[in-house]
């Protein structure tokens, strides 16, 4: 029936077997695009008029921040699907997404600090954007910690899903923080509805890097989800067969 594909998605075995063939492609494409985008942006793209070469950090900073926020939706929505349909696989995706998001958030904060020191004159300020990103980092760490805090995996999944859903409101807050409050962080450069305020010579490598990070994210998320599947399904016959094969 209409929901059949959805329920089949809930089978960890089906998912594991289906995604095996995708991994090398995702890995190859994402690494290639990241290399291309980095070389384009760092070696061939121009320096920025006022900031000079330090502006080149956007090729890492912006994609990391975009994926840190998009990844939160992946995590929270997976949690919601797990709660509603009691789908085991969905909880595994949620668990797998948390540390990836934490690393990306840290990367965005770190690259921002490195850029802030020469540009603003301070590597860290507590303005609206940076503070809400710190909250995002803590939310991710909270999910990681909650997953480890319970003996019972089912309880851990439900509690962390609730935290992930409650924290979801932080994403629009991060996004709009630079418009709502006086912040030191600049407003958005890439705009959906109007002309972006970046020269195309820097805008195209940036867009390429964002695309590359999306594919890289999908790759790492799949890898981590598959490890989680093997861990949680280790008593089943099909996992034992994979282990036996080596």
């Amino acid at each position: 029936m209409a929901w059949q594909w959805f329920h089949r998605l809930g089978s960890p075995k089906w998912f594991y077997e289906k995604t095996t063939a995708w991994l090398p492609w995702l890995g190859f494409i994402s690494i290639t695009l990241i290399l291309l985008g980095s070389i384009w942006g760092l070696a061939f793209g121009p320096a920025e008029a006022k900031q000079g070469n330090s502006a080149r950090i956007i090729y890492i900073h912006v994609p990391a921040a975009v994926l840190a926020m998009a990844g939160y939706y992946v995590m929270a929505i997976s949690g919601a699907i797990g709660l509603i349909w009691r789908m085991k696989l969905s909880f595994m995706v949620m668990k797998a997404a948390a540390p990836i998001g934490a690393v990306l958030t840290f990367l965005a904060l770190f690259t921002g600090a490195v850029w802030g020191k020469p540009t603003w004159g301070a590597w860290w300020v507590w303005d609206g954007r940076i503070t809400s990103m710190v909250v995002l980092f803590l939310l991710y760490l909270g999910i990681v910690a909650l997953q480890e805090a319970y003996q019972n995996q089912d309880t851990a999944d439900k509690i962390s899903s609730v935290l992930a859903l409650v924290g979801m409101v932080n994403i629009p807050i991060i996004y709009k923080s630079v418009d709502w409050w006086y912040t030191l962080h600049q407003p958005a450069t890439l705009k959906l509805t109007e002309k972006s305020s970046i020269d195309p010579s820097m805008g195209y490598p940036l867009l390429l890097m964002i695309l590359a990070f999306y594919i890289f994210y999908a790759w790492v998320l799949l890898l981590r989800t598959r490890v989680e599947i093997l861990k949680r399904e280790q008593k089943t016959n099909w996992v034992q067969e994979i282990v036996a094969k080596g």
């Binding site: 008029a49 450069t189 820097m202």
Partner: peptide, 18 residues
């Protein structure tokens, strides 16, 4: 006690800025 510069959202290459 401290002066910070605020950068804007514009990213412009030097030749365009000139």
């Amino acid at each position: 006690s401290q002066v910070l510069a605020k950068h804007d959202e514009n990213y412009v290459p030097p030749e365009v800025a000139e």
